[in-house]
Amino acid sequence: MAISSSLRKALIGASGAGAIAIATVLVPSQEGTELTPYKDVGGVWTVCSGVTGKDVIPGKVYTKQECDKLLQKHLQVFASSVERSVKVPMSEYQEAALISFSYNVGTYAFEHSSVLRNLNAGRYQQACDGLRQWKYVNKRVVAGLVNRREVEREICLWGE
């Protein structure tokens, strides 16, 4: 799946404001936004744009403003992980793609991934291409993850 022209424009519009600003556009485009908590394909309670954890209260209906605030709060955790873990220079687009990836798979998975190892070894193309491997839930390929990884890979390669 290629990046839509509207998403491309929104991402370019966020350029210069930093990786978190770009990720703030990217993550909801990939996650969607649900104001009522639901169980995701892995059975995890989720709300807004992929928020999980103690901030999710089953049965509560969230406002758009609450969702925006939760997204900012949660993105900070993943941005910190990316900033702490990556030891080589990266563009704000590469960083945003990695924040989105980490947001989806979790900090532990990101920090122990071949994506990070390849990146830190200076193998940018291999690292970005490696995002494609992360398309499984319970050993099954999930089409939504295939699409998401293609978008993240393309944005990751914008930094090349």
Rank of each mutant, 00 (worst) to 15 (best):
N104A: 02
F78V: 08
S6Q: 10
R8E: 14
Y136F: 12
Q126T: 12
S114Q: 09
E152V: 02
R140W: 05
V88D: 09
I12A: 05
K139G: 01
I12V: 07
V115P: 00
R140C: 08
C67Q: 01
V86E: 01
A19Y: 03
D40R: 04
A109D: 02
A97K: 09
V105P: 01
G13R: 11
R153D: 05
W158L: 15
V141C: 12
F110S: 01
L145A: 06
E150R: 11
V47I: 10
Q65H: 09
P58R: 12
A121W: 05
S81Q: 10
E111K: 11
A96W: 00
S29A: 09
A121P: 04
G32D: 15
Y136T: 14
E66I: 04
V146M: 12
R123N: 12
E152K: 05
P28A: 02
E111M: 10
I22W: 00
V151Y: 02
A79P: 00
Y62H: 07
L26G: 03
Y38A: 11
E95M: 15
V44Q: 04
Y93C: 06
L116I: 01
S6H: 06
Q65V: 10
C128N: 03
L116C: 05
A23M: 07
E31K: 05
V142S: 08
D55Q: 13
A10H: 03
S4D: 09
V61E: 15
V47S: 00
L145R: 09
V88A: 10
R84L: 05
C48L: 14
R140P: 01
A109F: 01
F110C: 03
R8S: 13
P37L: 08
L119F: 15
A143T: 14
K9E: 09
G16R: 10
A10R: 12
T36C: 15
K9F: 06
G130C: 04
S4G: 11
L70P: 07
G32C: 14
A143Q: 15
C128H: 04
A10I: 02
E154M: 13
V82S: 12
G53Y: 05
S113F: 03
S5D: 13
E95G: 01
D40L: 08
Q76R: 15
